[in-house]
Measured scan of single mutants.
Amino acid sequence: TQVHVDGVTYTFSNPEEAKKFADEMAKRKGGTWEIKDGHIHVE
């Protein structure tokens, strides 16, 4: 599962880990995350 944050791609083999990471990054940025085309995007 790929997580895209500010133009950087992080790859996780476990989708649950990817979601936890996205959640943390979104909180830090004061933003949100969503799943697009099977990838997670942090806004």
Rank of each mutant, 00 (worst) to 15 (best):
Q2N: 10
K27A: 11
E24T: 08
G7L: 04
D23V: 11
Y10H: 09
H39I: 15
M25L: 09
G7S: 06
G7M: 04
V3K: 00
H41Y: 15
M25F: 06
P15R: 07
E24G: 05
E24K: 09
G31A: 05
V3I: 03
G38V: 03
K19V: 14
G30D: 07
M25D: 02
A26D: 02
I35A: 06
E17I: 08
F12S: 00
H41T: 11
H39C: 15
V42I: 12
E16K: 06
A26E: 02
K19E: 11
Y10T: 05
Q2K: 13
T9D: 06
F12G: 01
H41V: 14
K20W: 08
V42Y: 04
K20D: 09
T11S: 11
G31N: 03
D23T: 12
P15D: 11
F12T: 00
T1M: 14
T11K: 08
V3L: 03
I40M: 04
D23W: 06
G38T: 03
A26K: 03
E43G: 12
V8L: 13
F12L: 03
Y10W: 07
T11G: 05
E24D: 10
Y10S: 03
S13Q: 12
I40R: 00
H4V: 09
F21H: 01
K27Q: 10
V42D: 02
H4T: 07
S13M: 11
E34K: 06
A26N: 03
I40V: 03
R28T: 13
I40Q: 02
I40S: 01
F12P: 01
E24I: 11
H4F: 13
T32N: 13
G38P: 02
G7N: 10
T32G: 12
Q2F: 13
D6L: 05
K20L: 12
K36V: 15
I35P: 06
T32P: 04
K20Q: 12
H41P: 02
E24L: 11
Y10A: 03
K29Y: 15
I40N: 01
K29S: 14
V5S: 06
E24C: 15
H4M: 07
M25Y: 08
K36I: 15
G7T: 04
W33I: 15
N14Y: 07
H39D: 11
T9A: 08
G30P: 01
V3A: 01
A18G: 04
G30L: 05
G7R: 04
E43L: 15
E16D: 12
G30T: 03
N14V: 07
E43V: 15
F12Y: 03
F21P: 00
T9Y: 13
G31K: 02
G30E: 06
H39P: 02
H4G: 01
K36T: 10
E16L: 09
V3T: 01
V42M: 06
K36L: 13
E16V: 09
E24Q: 09
G7F: 05
Q2L: 12
E17P: 01
T11F: 14
K19C: 15
V3P: 00
V42Q: 02
N14P: 00
G7H: 07
H41A: 05
E16A: 09
D23N: 10
K20A: 13
G31P: 04
V5T: 04
K27H: 08
K19Q: 10
H41I: 14
E34W: 15
A18C: 07
M25I: 12
D23F: 07
P15Y: 15
K20E: 12
R28Y: 10
K27V: 08
A22E: 02
A22D: 00
T11H: 12
I35H: 05
E17M: 10
E16G: 07
G30A: 03
W33F: 07
I35K: 05
